[in-house]
């Protein structure tokens, strides 16, 4: 944990050492029928921390991240998000969902709504904001992700990179404390990846707590405070980027890195 201090120069005035735990997973397990996708996953993520989750395909990264906002339901163990435990309690699920934003690999924008409506729909009906205020917020968010001029287009008329940035804006519109990214750049052409990563970096700098599943090692090295490596539904190794990329302890991590780098 001490390595985090070195990062803080890059990442502005954050005090990760004294930060609150915002996501706590403890012994989380999950089965699909007879297949165990998560096996006793335990981890803690602090406020304002940027965590990158790595791992081979099918290792349960998506499943884990989706458990955190209850798109999947874990069967054993506990997940606490910002002091709220994810259980069958309806109130808790609603609270967690509105505090955790999520960005998907395939963007999943609503094709029948304009970009502006895509962003302002949830603030209006879930956060119960007045329409004018929500649309103003949508405009400023589009400004922030760099595409203010696309507000009245439909998602089908945008490029992949623009769509993913709209998706980020849509998640931000709910003013979440935590953002989850599930391979946000893997459906994009190389020249579009950068524009999305730039938005994500800006977000990280602004102090957002982020959990990112990605295969972009550059992003991981530059931005991550912590890297978790998963395999077979388990977290095999956790550490800072320096530690992780230079001298990983586990054999499996080494193997993975040798394949990917």
């Amino acid at each position: 944990m001490t390595d985090n201090e070195t990062k803080s120069s890059v990442r502005g005035d954050r005090d990760l050492a004294n930060a609150q735990d915002i996501i706590v997973c403890e012994g989380v397990s999950k089965w699909f029928g007879d297949f165990q996708a998560l096996n006793n996953v335990s981890a803690t993520i602090k406020e304002q921390e940027v965590v990158v989750v790595l791992g081979p395909s099918g290792s349960g990264k998506s499943t884990w991240i989706r458990c955190i906002n209850r798109l999947e339901q874990h069967q054993e163990g506990r997940i606490m998000v910002d002091g709220v435990e994810l259980s069958n309690d309806l109130r808790n699920i609603e609270k967690v969902r509105s505090e955790v934003g999520m960005v998907f690999q395939m963007f999943n924008l609503f094709p029948h709504l304009t970009v502006r409506d895509n962003i302002s729909l949830a603030p209006i009906w879930v956060r119960k904001k007045p329409r004018a205020e929500a649309e103003e917020q949508a405009s400023s968010l589009l400004e922030r992700v760099g595409i203010p001029e696309q507000a009245d287009k439909f998602p089908g008329q945008l490029s992949g990179g623009q769509q993913q940035r709209v998706a980020i804006a849509r998640a931000l519109a709910m003013e979440p404390k935590i953002m989850l990214f599930d391979e946000p750049t893997s459906a994009l052409d190389p020249e579009m990846i950068k524009e999305v990563l730039d938005v994500m970096k800006e977000l990280a700098l602004s102090g957002m707590t982020m959990m990112v599943v990605t295969h972009e090692m550059g992003f991981a090295k530059e931005v991550a405070d912590k890297i978790m490596f998963m395999e077979g539904g388990q977290i095999v190794e956790t550490g800072t980027p320096e530690h992780f990329f230079t001298n990983p302890t586990e054999e499996r991590t080494k193997l993975f890195l040798s394949q990917i780098l």
Binding site: E26, A43, T44, R78, E85, N88, D89, L90, I93
Partner: peptide
């Protein structure tokens, strides 16, 4: 690594309580 998580687990237990019936998704379902 391990110690803060263990610490947390005790607070976890304290927070967790029985879910009232009318808020339990499975019951509602």
């Amino acid at each position: 690594m391990q110690s803060p998580a263990e610490e947390k687990s005790s607070t976890l237990k304290a927070v967790s309580q029985r879910v009232p019936l009318w808020r339990d998704v499975v019951v509602i379902k």
